[in-house]
Design a protein around this nucleic acid. Structure first.
Lengths: 126, 126
DNA sequence: CTGACATCTGCACATATATGAAGATATAGG
DNA sequence: CCTATATCTTCATATATGTGCAGATGTCAG
């Protein structure tokens, strides 16, 4: 803390130390940022995004139908669902031979909603 | 389309073909989903998330001060900023020896805002 | 119990990504 | 022009990630 070598920091601790202190104080915690980043990372894949939007639209779908809707292999869907399930983004329910998935995270649902709106607005621009 | 081998699809095309067709029809496009996923992926890193929140908070900060606020190396910050800049999430401006960055994407700002609210509410739960 | 079907998991591989070190570029000040 | 500072880029590497295949598990029908 006391010694600042010229390796990777500014020569002086910062260009505007006062403001740095203020911003650092109100900045999101490292672990909270990590959780949030993990959530965003979960949404950072086209297949997973489409699966989630399909569930947002349909409410509940089995793996087989999800694969058909998204237009990809069941293995891919199953793997994606495993991730989403592990993160608590979706919930599953067994009915006979089929397993039905639905959204199970308010934050995820909100991000999907918000993003969809933004996309539909953006289509006017281009 | 006509022939469905038993490899990776359901024996019948889908458990509920009618609903599959409806959902598939209204589902987000593949390329739109890819763009969206790319954006989420951009937010899927703790360092980048903290940088973005620092900018959301401060409005504008130079690389040096950003590194101090986030508490990491300037190299890391610089690399993160390159990605964010490439994606159009931030914008930079040179002032002498310093380069100042600010947010430059309404969608990103909104996602950050919405998520921050959700986080602060969630702190009550746990 | 046996067979068919839906889903899941483990494995292997190609690719993507984060990271740190070292050097390159740009700017201000003399 | 020369030096110091701030930022950027290149490179090498360890790790993470997506993907397909093959096999395992679970469930129903007979």
């Amino acid at each position: 803390m006391s010694e600042v070598s010229g390796l990777d920091a500014c020569a002086i601790e910062a260009t505007d130390p006062a403001r740095v202190a203020v911003v650092a104080e109100s900045l999101i915690d490292v672990d909270v940022a990590s959780d949030l980043a993990e959530l965003f990372r979960l949404l950072g894949d086209p297949t997973r995004v489409r699966i989630l939007y399909a569930l947002l639209e349909a409410g509940e779908l089995c793996v087989c139908d999800l694969a058909a809707v998204v237009g990809t292999s069941e293995t891919k869907v199953s793997q994606a669902l495993r991730l989403l399930r592990g993160a608590g983004a979706v919930r599953n329910r067994r009915d006979g031979r089929n397993v039905y998935y639905r959204l199970d995270d308010a934050h995820v649902r909100m991000l999907l909603d918000v993003s969809r709106e933004h996309i539909s607005h953006k289509q006017e621009d281009q």
